[in-house]
């Protein structure tokens, strides 16, 4: 049981009894806070998923929210049109996302760098229009209304478990040969292929795993929101959030997206909650600032104790001796 697993279990145990304290007394935890936490867990999961393809594999996906939308619509259509209960509908939603990822990924993942990014952005915008046009199935622009179900603690628990599972999964994957190969692809795809890595397969698997998990979040979101339409589900800003949170925390690190998502959610909820009309503007400015001034993210900058000044400072603070990377795990 590593340090990480311990930390995760601890966090989980700490978060577990929160809904028990929900009550009318203002000092206790309100339903609104519980809802807020649920949103944060979703964002942590989304950012971690994006990090798998964008951070580890190095394919910066500008349309990852398409899988969120497909998960939401897959779930929504099954519930609203076919009358299925939530759980099997969610499975369908996630499957739709994965199948689409396999199909689109086998084309777009052949593209390199910015071409991949733009092709995925195109996928996203195109899918929104397709959903809008496919009225008989999706309700088109007027959207779908799902059977309402108000149970904040339940959503809290589901998203908590999901976030913990995804973080743990990515941490575990990072330590396997497969995870290491994703890094190799990011660092030098031609070299990786020549050294025996089936890069196409690796990329598609990573892409589909991320899509699956994002599809699940989409389905959960749809059920919690009880209403979906193309604009609210296929929302550009959702991808921006994933990218921004991951980049703030640190691309290709396990903790990066978690820290980034928590930090940005906190900022949004607390710092600029009263200026919501500026929200997206601030978000855009923040992303530019991160890209220009903190390209390695918090984890990357603090973790690299040899070549960044912030990292050196952090290293001195953490331990007096300079780093000795003995346990170099791939």
């Amino acid at each position: 049981m590593g340090r990480w697993t311990l930390l995760l279990v601890l966090l989980f145990l700490l978060a577990l009894p929160l809904p028990k304290f929900v009550g009318p007394n203002p000092k206790m935890i309100s339903n609104a806070l519980l809802f807020s936490m649920t949103q944060m867990f979703m964002l942590i999961t989304l950012a971690s998923n994006w990090n798998l393809i964008g951070g580890f594999t190095g394919y910066v996906d500008f349309g990852h929210a398409v899988f969120f939308g497909l998960g939401a619509y897959g779930t929504g259509v099954m519930m609203a049109k076919a009358g299925w209960p939530f759980a099997p509908a969610l499975v369908i939603g996630a499957l739709v996302a994965v199948i689409f990822a396999l199909l689109i990924g086998s084309a777009t993942l052949r593209l390199k760098g910015p071409y991949f990014s733009i092709a995925m952005l195109g996928t996203f915008v195109a899918m929104r229009e397709i959903v809008r046009v496919a009225k008989p199935l999706t309700g088109g622009g007027s959207g779908l209304t799902l059977p309402p179900y108000l149970n904040r603690p339940l959503f809290y628990y589901i998203t908590l478990v999901m976030a913990i599972l995804v973080i743990w999964f990515i941490w575990w994957l990072r330590g396997t040969q497969f995870g290491a190969s994703l890094i190799a692809i990011r660092e030098d795809e031609v070299g990786a292929e020549m050294r025996g890595i089936n890069t196409t397969l690796h990329k598609i698997v990573a892409f589909s795993l991320a899509a699956f998990s994002t599809g699940v979040v989409g389905g959960l979101w749809a059920y919690q929101n009880t209403f979906i339409d193309p604009d609210v589900v296929f929302f550009e800003s959702r991808t921006v959030e994933m990218v921004m949170m991951t980049m703030l925390g640190g691309l290709g690190t396990v903790a990066g997206p978690v820290i980034g998502a928590a930090l940005i959610y906190w900022l949004r909820d607390v710092v600029w909650a009263n200026f919501l009309q500026f929200h997206l503007i601030v978000q855009g400015l923040l992303l530019i600032a991160i890209v220009l001034f903190l390209p390695e993210g918090l984890m990357g900058t603090l973790g690299d104790r040899s070549s960044t000044s912030l990292g050196r400072l952090w290293g001195r603070y953490m331990n007096a001796s300079p780093q000795t990377p003995q346990e170099a795990q791939p």
């Binding site: 910066v60 500008f62 760098g113 910015p114 990014s117 733009i118 550009e236 800003s237 921006v240 990218v243 980049m247 500026f278 997206l280 503007i281 978000q283 855009g284 400015l285 992303l287 530019i288 890209v291 220009l292 390209p295």
Partner: peptide, 19 residues
Amino acid sequence: PPLISLLVTFSLSIIIANV
């Protein structure tokens, strides 16, 4: 790197649209 310019101009697009 091209991705830096993508991210920056992508952010710029969001800022302009929302302003």
